[in-house]
Every structure is written in C-alpha cells, then in structure tokens.
C-alpha cells in the first residue's frame, strides 16, 4: 500500500498569505503537493462552516493563512479569525478531534519560505496523525 498522502485545504487571504504562497513559487521553494488553496479576501472571511465542512468531508487538515497582527489589510480581520478559530477549536476538541488538524498561521507576502515550511511541517504532522477519522466514520 502506498504511503498516506494527507490532503490540506487552505484558506488564504488575498493580500498577504496568498501572495506569500506565490512568492514561494517564484523562489522555487519545494513543498509537498498536499495543499489545495482557496483564495478569499481576508482571513476574517473564513466561516467556521468552511472549516467544519472540510473536516467532515474528509480533508485531513485545514490551514488558514492571514496577515501578521497589525498588518491586516482590512485592519482587524486576522484578530477576528483568531477568535473564531479559538471557539471552533473548543468545539472540535469536544467532538473528538483532539489533534491539531486546523492551523491558523500568519504569513506575510514576503514569507514565501515560511509558507513552504508551514505546508511541509503540517503535511508531516498530519502523516503522523494519520487520515482524518471522519473518512471512515459517520458519513454525515
């Protein structure tokens, strides 16, 4: 059997992290092809529904990328995202998703390497965690 290849769904903000991900490409940083990027305008526009739906539908991990504190192009969207995710994590925890399958990361437009490193590390961590148990369980 081939090795488990995690699937990560990423929600990246338009201004910082998406641009950072582009920079990773321009500078040819190599990282695993585990990630599927959804482009949104702001990390503050990531609805908990998206994250939960991704997990329920079998994504092994979810990455939310936003501007560093103080750098949000919409002033404060990243702070709101952080709070929303904190609440969501409390719920996921009770649900039995005890591992960290959801990651919020501040990655600026100039941090291509950080983006690549983040994806690499997350992929490796997810490999250790194994596949999202949702895939085998209740097909909600």
């Amino acid at each position: 059997m081939s090795e488990f290849e995690p699937r990560i769904v990423a929600f990246l903000c338009h201004w910082c992290t998406y641009t950072g991900a582009d920079l990773a490409g321009t500078t040819r940083q190599q990282y695993p092809p585990s990630i599927r990027v959804i482009h949104l305008m702001c990390s503050g526009a990531v609805d908990s529904i998206y994250v939960l739906k991704a997990l329920i539908d079998g994504a092994d991990g979810v990455l939310i990328g936003g501007c560093h504190p103080g750098d949000c192009h919409y002033q404060t969207g990243n702070y709101k995202a952080r709070r929303r995710l904190a609440i969501l994590k409390g719920i996921l925890n009770q649900m039995g998703f005890t591992e960290d399958r959801v990651l919020l990361k501040w990655i600026s437009a100039s941090e291509g390497k950080l983006f690549a490193d983040t994806v690499t590390k997350m992929t490796n961590d997810l490999k250790k965690m194994g596949p999202n148990p949702m895939k085998q369980l209740w097909n909600a």
């Binding site: 290849e5 991900a21 582009d22 920079l23 990773a24 490409g25 321009t26 040819r28 940083q29 190599q30 990282y31 695993p32 092809p33 990630i35 599927r36 990027v37 690549a116």
Partner: peptide, 25 residues
C-alpha cells in the same frame, strides 16, 4: 487556476502528484 507559482514551481520533482493537484486547482 494558479498552477504555476502554487503548483508546477513548487512540486518540481513530483510530476504525477503535481498534475493531480493542478487538476484539482
């Protein structure tokens, strides 16, 4: 569909998986 900066350029040595990802994108 960003299959250059966010795919081909960053998965240079994994053509199969990169193609699979590009298809999803």
């Amino acid at each position: 569909a960003n299959i250059r900066e966010q795919c081909a350029f960053v998965h240079r040595d994994l053509p199969e998986l990169a193609t699979e990802k590009a298809m999803v994108l």
